[in-house]
Amino acid sequence: MALNTPQITPTKKITVRAIGEELPRGDYQRCPQCDMLFSLPEINSHQSAYCPRCQAKIRDGRDWSLTRLAAMAFTMLLLMPFAWGEPLLHIWLLGIRIDANVMQGIWQMTKQGDAITGSMVFFCVIGAPLILVTSIAYLWFGNRLGMNLRPVLLMLERLKEWVMLDIYLVGIGVASIKVQDYAHIQAGVGLFSFVALVILTTVTLSHLNVEELWERFYPQRPATRRDEKLRVCLGCHFTGYPDQRGRCPRCHIPLRLRRRHSLQKCWAALLASIVLLLPANLLPISIIYLNGGRQEDTILSGIMSLASSNIAVAGIVFIASILVPFTKVIVMFTLLLSIHFKCQQGLRTRILLLRMVTWIGRWSMLDLFVISLTMSLINRDQILAFTMGPAAFYFGAAVILTILAVEWLDSRLLWDAHESGNARFDD
Rank of each mutant, 00 (worst) to 15 (best):
E212D: 07
P129R: 00
V195A: 08
Q186M: 12
I199T: 13
A269H: 02
M1D: 00
H340S: 08
A187G: 11
I299M: 15
E215W: 04
Y138C: 06
A272Y: 02
T15V: 11
D410G: 00
V125T: 04
C343D: 13
E161G: 15
L197V: 04
W408D: 02
D416N: 12
C236W: 00
S309H: 04
C248F: 00
P249Y: 05
H237S: 11
D427G: 14
R68K: 04
L404I: 15
L23V: 14
S308T: 06
I274G: 11
H340V: 11
T387P: 00
M109C: 09
W107A: 15
A183P: 01
D381F: 08
G302Y: 00
E161H: 12
L234H: 13
Y50C: 10
L78H: 06
W359K: 14
Y182K: 07
A100L: 02
N4C: 09
L159G: 02
D60G: 13
A397S: 13
D35E: 08
T134F: 14
Q186I: 10
G240P: 04
V329E: 08
S135T: 01
M1Q: 00
M375A: 10
R362S: 06
F217S: 13
M365Y: 03
I371E: 01
A392N: 05
N379P: 01
S411H: 08
D426S: 14
V406E: 07
A2P: 14
L149R: 10
Q108Y: 11
H237D: 07
L205V: 11
R62L: 13
T15W: 12
V357R: 00
V16L: 10
R256Q: 03
G61R: 14
Q382K: 02
N148Y: 02
R231G: 04
P219A: 10
A100F: 04
A175S: 14
G396Q: 02
F82P: 05
P279S: 11
V399G: 07
I311S: 08
I316A: 10
N379M: 03
P254I: 13
H90F: 05
P249A: 04
I339N: 13
C266H: 02
P87G: 04
L40G: 12
G235S: 02
H237K: 09
P222H: 07
M76Y: 04
E86I: 04
N281K: 05
L283Q: 11
W408N: 03
I199E: 03
F123K: 01
M356L: 15
T110P: 09
L154N: 02
C248A: 00
C248T: 00
N291R: 12
M36W: 11
A269I: 02
L3Y: 11
V357L: 10
E161L: 14
F38A: 05
P52N: 08
A2I: 07
I351T: 08
G26Q: 12
T134D: 02
Y289E: 01
F141T: 03
E215K: 14
G240E: 05
E211V: 11
Q244H: 09
Q112F: 03
V163E: 10
T202Y: 15
L404M: 14
C233M: 00
E228Y: 07
V174G: 11
Q33G: 13
G118A: 13
L352A: 11
S135R: 00
Y394I: 01
F217G: 15
K13H: 15
C248H: 00
T201L: 07
N143A: 15
L401N: 08
A49S: 11
L234A: 09
W162H: 01
I177R: 04
L347P: 09
I172K: 02
V152N: 03
A137I: 03
G95K: 04
F192L: 13
A314Q: 08
Q220E: 09
V313A: 02
F369Q: 03
F74G: 14
E157V: 13
Q47S: 07
V179R: 01
L191A: 14
A115V: 05
